[in-house]
Design a protein around this nucleic acid. Structure first.
Lengths: 220, 220
DNA sequence: GACTACCTAGAGTATATACTCTAATAATAG
DNA sequence: CTATTATTAGAGTATATACTCTAGGTAGTC
């Protein structure tokens, strides 16, 4: 593998594992057993590395969120979109963690991420549209559907932070893909009241698959 | 005012304004025109300052989220809780911004914040309970209500990050309390399907007060 | 006035961080 | 083989950061 790609891969791994804030360019170089000079030969600075990683993330999610408009959507479609989005979130999980700082430090990233968010929101809207066409959910006025889509996005992008901060034992802050996908349970919770009677049962069954095994204490 | 209190106040102000990551203890001292030694006389380190600020935040929110259990809750109660929570979020807005790093760096904070989250979730649950008693929302099974409460929490705590990252112009990332309170619109969106017919109209009217004036583009 | 507890200044330091520079080595093209 | 280009090592640096240390001031009390 090319050194440049190794740098991107290892950076992503280290960022995910230990947080972007805790990983310096010197750490990355040491991890790869290359010199700092070598790293800076391939990337002008740390921001550039992060930006390139974002471009990969963006490409992955955009790929999965191509919503067919020529046919209605099924519950299976919805399940696929949810699985895919959470897989993407998992692979690039460092990103949402320090998002605000990253966007403050890089104008390109700021601009691209905003466009990315809008595409995601549009895709969620389209999914709801397709599900309504497929008779899975009841059609809703545009305004309500948009606000619901935004709530779905907020739940998806905040679920991981919730897990890391509120969940888990006092010592371990480790996170598993299984836990992360319990976010699907939360997203499906949002949809329940809008399901058509015919699809209530299958969607509830799908939801059940993601139910947390040991729900955290929610009562004081 | 005592120097110690001035440090806390200025730190909060600087953290909110420019992000905890961008503010060093030397910045704080310089801002107050005191010496670093003086600052370190009052606080052992930066984490201690942040922890003290958290304690204030915690106290404020706990104060507002004392839910009466001896009477049903009204729409006005709900509006008050929402306003209060978003006011708190605004006053200590730096906190949720770099939450994960802060909790990773301070065990006390990690422990206390987790307990705080659980208290908040319990309060949201109680509010839903009280609203059901008051006939505002339809009573729901415990499981669904808990999952809904969690979604409310996720929307509330992620709304600000959404504004900062996805909203606003490319250059300005400034945030206003008015914008922040548009999060109430999103929270009320979650409640719509659970409202009793009698309360649909008044809650929709309340929601309308927080509708964003210039909604961002949500369609590609 | 002198004792004491509290408070403050400000220079200083060890370490980390992002990044640079030069020289050398590999790869490739003609 | 040679010239050129791409890649790498590794020492080095300017700046920042969190924090320390010493000496001295201030306020209250007897």
């Amino acid at each position: 593998m090319k050194t440049r790609d190794k740098i991107l891969l290892s950076s992503l791994e280290l960022f995910n594992e230990r947080g972007e804030r805790n990983i310096t360019t010197n750490h990355i170089a040491a991890y790869l057993a290359i010199s700092p000079g070598n790293l800076y030969y391939h990337f002008r600075n740390k921001s550039d590395i992060i930006y390139e990683i974002f471009l990969e993330y963006e490409k992955l999610v955009d790929y999965y969120l191509q919503i067919p408009t020529d046919r209605p959507l099924t519950v299976d479609d919805m399940a696929f979109y949810l699985e895919s989005v959470f897989d993407g979130l998992w692979s690039y999980r460092f990103f949402h963690r320090e998002l605000e700082f990253l966007l403050d430090s890089d104008q390109r990233l700021r601009r691209d991420y905003r466009a990315f968010t809008n595409r995601c929101l549009a895709a969620i809207n389209q999914i709801f549209d397709g599900l309504a066409e497929g008779g899975v959910i009841q059609p809703q006025p545009e305004e309500l559907r948009s606000a619901m889509s935004l709530n779905v996005w907020l739940v998806i992008t905040n679920w991981m932070a919730f897990l890391k901060t509120a969940h888990g034992s006092e010592l371990s802050n480790n996170l598993s893909l299984v836990q992360l996908k319990q976010g699907i349970y939360q997203v499906l919770t949002l949809e329940i009241p809008y399901l058509t009677p015919a699809y209530l049962e299958p969607v509830m069954a799908l939801r059940e698959k993601y139910r947390p095994e040991l729900p955290e204490a929610r009562v004081a």
